[in-house]
Design a protein around this nucleic acid. Structure first.
Lengths: 351, 351
DNA sequence: CCTCGCGATTTGCGCGCTCAAATTTTACCG
DNA sequence: CGGTAAAATTTGAGCGCGCAAATCGCGAGG
């Protein structure tokens, strides 16, 4: 015991590679090999080492690993405060999916808060230089988002969920086909016999909103639905109150729509509320389809377009860890329609 | 340049302590002191070093710091998948608040996914032994939650948001006073003139639900409200559909309540839906108050009890980093009532 | 019987930093 | 102006690990 260099895993610290090595009577590196390149170790040795690893409950120290291989195996991600007024978006679903996807590749999620876009850029730079995270995930991209270019310039690896209007070919992104989303909604309503399908969206100018509007337009045209008058396309802020007012304008028209496709669940909730106050029963007199499939949609039996967030997260992580692709990879995933009673019934005969 | 030991911050790696030291013509440790104990460094030297730190954009390497001081400055937190059916709880609000609170103390959030409680315990153990996180945050505690004891046994530092029924004096927690919450709701309704205030809660057996029920009971008794018959206390699963059915039972009574206090916003949504189908206008014929102030509540103009999540997060972080308290600290914070139109008007005269 | 070659295993080194102890410098007083 | 204490700064060691090069051991070939 007086022999120098003979450590025991004395209480306190977790066992180290050295501890396991000593216990198994091999060297540090052999234990490391058992973990990372088992084929290099003779089966007999390997088994013995494995035995001691589990007996001591050895767990590699991530900080030491990170330092040695200069890669932290952390994925950085800003967590945004939720926008007051809007229904919760899919932040938590996305974060959970990311964590899940990262786990498979032994990567963890590093969450940080930042006031705004430029604070986020600062934080990312700092975290990256400080080696706290190897790569980052950007989400909720706006049309003219500054972040992709900024990170590109800093040489920070990242993948975006969503994309900007321009320059989207200069960085890797994963996005959901919003155009397809609203198209699916309209198709579904047409199948149910609707011919006057309105669109309730955001004021034009925001990428996502515009794409969703475009999907409605395309579907209306391809089905040759009534829309020539143009009054079936209305816009409002993303709040329930605003949506209620705008929906009233839609309903007081001489030939009101029998169905409304909205750009968000928040707007859809507004449409439903307005319909009720107008004396219509949602699902019977007026069909409504929302977008994002928030928990609220499920609670209110609102049909909604669901983004495949889990797939997105998996693809984002794959792209992040994806070895040295040639050029930025881009993936456009397909959303799905979740049908609930707000749009399940066939259209009632003209009122 | 051939001089050995003379590194330049050549392209690639971020600048290190050594780089800054060399540039400023001082030693490694002096730079370190400027950062951590400026008072030990002579002002003139300090200024020069600071100058070079910012000029080189030096950022301490967190992995190296973590390794050296054997403290990762990371707070571990499991991210749960959201419960299908229930409205989103406050996960994202809490996570954001935690990240925000941790930032002030230079701590970041480490998110991980786990299937269930025991997987979470495993992960926590592994992350802790691996030095990936110094301490952990537990939330959504159930009455007989296994996690506190397990972490206690493993010697892993943690703070819980919420608490178990028994043994809550053996570990540090921060909780919101749920009893007070429903009491506030009832008080508010009584102020508005209501005398028959029903409670719509979870089946008894779950800590949180029971506390919320108790608050209603206390308030009803202290205000001497009608309740002797006992029919004003009803329970259902935490889903909108179930709540609708149960609310109908409440409404078909000979002396129906004029107001309903619920244990969650989900239940409140059910109550609101039921009222509408019954031909009552929420806010005029029937007042409803929810619990948790989810985004849905805001969207539907539902009054709700709001938990001070940001305070909770700050207190959790403070407790986590709090130096060697004597015994576990416990904090019970007060919720607040957010009044919206679902309960704002005075009670209408008896119907 | 000795050497070569190859797989198995070990050693040396450094990742970037902090702590403690050693060393140098500065300031002050007799 | 020497001496000394205090302040300022430097040096040495090591945190736990991975990489690369070095070493060991053993069977085949000459």
């Amino acid at each position: 015991m007086a022999e120098p260099g003979h450590h025991e895993p004395v209480g306190g610290g977790a066992p180290t590679l050295q501890d396991v090595a000593q216990a198994a009577g091999v060297s540090r590196q052999t234990v490391s090999n058992v973990l990372h390149a088992p084929e290099r170790v003779r089966p007999a040795t390997r088994e013995r080492v494995v035995e001691f690893i589990s007996r001591l409950g050895y767990q590699p120290n991530r900080q030491a690993q990170a330092l040695a291989r200069s890669a932290s195996h952390m994925i950085g991600c800003r967590i945004r405060p939720l926008t007051p007024g809007a229904l919760t978006s899919m932040h938590d679903r996305f974060l959970h999916a990311l964590a899940e996807a990262g786990r498979a590749a032994d990567h963890h999620l590093l969450l940080f808060a930042a006031e705004d876009e430029s604070a986020e850029i600062d934080s990312v730079g700092r975290l990256h230089r400080g080696g706290a995270a190897d790569a980052f995930v950007l989400y909720d991209l706006t049309a003219d988002d500054q972040r992709p270019k900024a990170l590109l310039d800093m040489g920070v690896p990242f993948v975006a969920f969503g994309r900007t209007d321009t320059g989207a070919d200069t960085y890797p992104w994963v996005d959901v086909d919003n155009v397809l989303g609203t198209r699916l909604a309209v198709d579904h309503l047409v199948n149910r016999g609707h011919r006057r399908v309105a669109f309730l969206g955001w004021p034009s100018g925001r990428t996502i909103g515009d794409r969703r509007a475009r999907g409605w337009h395309q579907a209306v045209e391809s089905h040759r639905l009534a829309s020539t008058c143009g009054v079936l396309d209305v816009r409002s802020e993303d709040s329930v109150q605003a949506a209620i007012q705008v929906t009233f304008r839609l309903l007081e028209h001489s030939e009101p729509p029998t169905a409304i496709v909205t750009a968000t669940d928040t707007l859809a909730v507004g449409a439903m509320q307005a319909a009720q106050r107008w004396g219509l029963e949602v699902g019977r007199d007026l069909a409504v389809v929302g977008f994002d499939d928030t928990p609220t949609a499920a609670a209110l039996e609102l049909s909604s377009i669901r983004q495949p967030i889990e797939l997105v997260a998996r693809q984002v992580v794959a792209a992040l860890l994806g070895t040295d692709e040639v050029g930025p990879g881009c993936w456009l995933l397909e959303p799905q329609l979740v049908i609930r009673s707000s749009s399940a019934r066939p259209a009632s005969p003209r009122r």
